[in-house]
Design a protein around this nucleic acid. Structure first.
Lengths: 229, 229
DNA sequence: GGTTGATGGTGACAGTGTCAACATAGAGAC
DNA sequence: GTCTCTATGTTGACACTGTCACCATCAACC
């Protein structure tokens, strides 16, 4: 009768909202809110050194705990990366929704969403790649990632539906139109984040947001209502 | 007066084309063409396990040499990743050029290029991410990557110029039009590679190539000649 | 034929993810 | 208040990695 070696972390979703200090206070055994602290540390590592810099040991060091403490909160390295990705997608969705509000015209809302999207990608390229990349390989094992992504996507679909109701966006499956728009915006964001291939051009045109507007302009012709449909 | 510890590998670009065997033949000291063998091994590792699986030691093991032999051919891990990326970009450019040839209409050539692009991304997602991603961080240090990318981009620009000459693509800076097209196609490819968010939709529409056509269709409206310009 | 430079090998070190086993503290039961 | 249980954090170990310093071998050239 051997005790189970490691009882599969429960991920208690942190119901209370306690200390919020990254580093453990000296001399105490328990940290207080280690899960949050580790995520915060991992986030800092991600910004500073990229995905490869995000390690369980490094995060533990930043949080001031032993190298194995993180395993009480994250199953493995991929799990903490997935948590970061879910966090990022949630923030993206929130920012998109906020950008969409306050625009009477759905087309303006779409532009604002695009600008937000590309801006966030440019601000935090490493997080952006984590959100959509393969560092977290099987996203099925991390439903929080998928759900957060779907919520962001829904902001786009809803905006298009609204525009169709108002008659400023052509008829057709909103999901399909949203797909096209997402692809273009994600393409701009990816190209900008991915390589320097566009950097000089982006600068000429007023940064990533300007670049987004440029391409968004180009696609808008394809979204306008048709004569007779 | 100490001898320089490691004389900065020359990367002799392999002028001769010798053995071409991945594994070293038993008993011989020199491999014959270790650089090529290491790249081949790294390529296999990339396909099978993703970028994290590409390691100098693992590649050396596959090639049947000691764990430090690769340092005679690649300065560090990033260098071998960069070599893989350059290889991939060169292949992409070749395939794009081949796809563009044999289409009288430049618009069809653009579609064929788009299809090729997305198909290759779907076929070898890990390579695709390596080509544009940040695993190889400062691409300035690896000019082969940048040059191969530029050559592929030029295929697109040339096709657009040709279409403008034939009057089937609207006037305007070809670089800018190519940028828009590239962004959209890269966006589709990225979305497809990045996540499963679009997977079911892509299947409905006949795989990634069909998805490319769908979005390409949508953007073509923005590329058609204007009435009066 | 000896020297030299390119190439491959050995050994070491620090860093990592992950497992097993142990220690501690806080919360509820009695 | 004391006991016990369980969540949480710690110590130690192992295999693996990138990278360094140094040694060994071979082929080409004076």
């Amino acid at each position: 009768m051997r005790s189970p070696p490691r009882p599969a972390p429960r991920v208690p979703r942190s119901p209370r909202t306690p200390k919020r200090a990254v580093a453990k206070k000296e001399g105490s055994f328990h940290h207080g809110d280690l899960e949050w602290a580790l995520l915060e540390a991992a986030s800092q590592l991600l910004e500073k050194e990229g995905p490869l810099g995000v390690g369980l040991r490094a995060a533990a060091r930043l949080a001031g705990v032993s190298h194995n403490a993180p395993y009480r909160h994250f199953e493995n390295r991929e799990s903490i990366l997935a948590a970061l990705a879910a966090r990022g997608l949630t923030e993206l969705g929130d920012r998109m929704a906020r950008a969409a509000r306050g625009h009477g015209d759905a087309r303006q809302a779409l532009s604002a969403i695009a600008e937000t999207y590309v801006t966030m990608a440019a601000e935090r390229p490493h997080l952006f790649r984590l959100m959509f990349g393969q560092e977290v390989a099987d996203k099925e094992r991390h439903p929080a990632v998928r759900e957060a992504g779907m919520r962001a996507y829904k902001v786009l679909v809803d905006t298009i539906v609204e525009g169709q109701r108002a008659g400023v966006i052509r008829a057709g499956s909103p999901e399909e139109l949203a797909l096209g728009h997402w692809a273009i915006v994600h393409g701009v964001a990816s190209l900008h984040v991915d390589g320097r291939m566009l950097e000089e051009r982006a600068r000429e045109r007023g940064g990533p947001a300007g670049l987004a507007r440029l391409v968004s302009e180009q696609i808008r012709l394809g979204l306008e209502p048709r004569r007779g449909g």
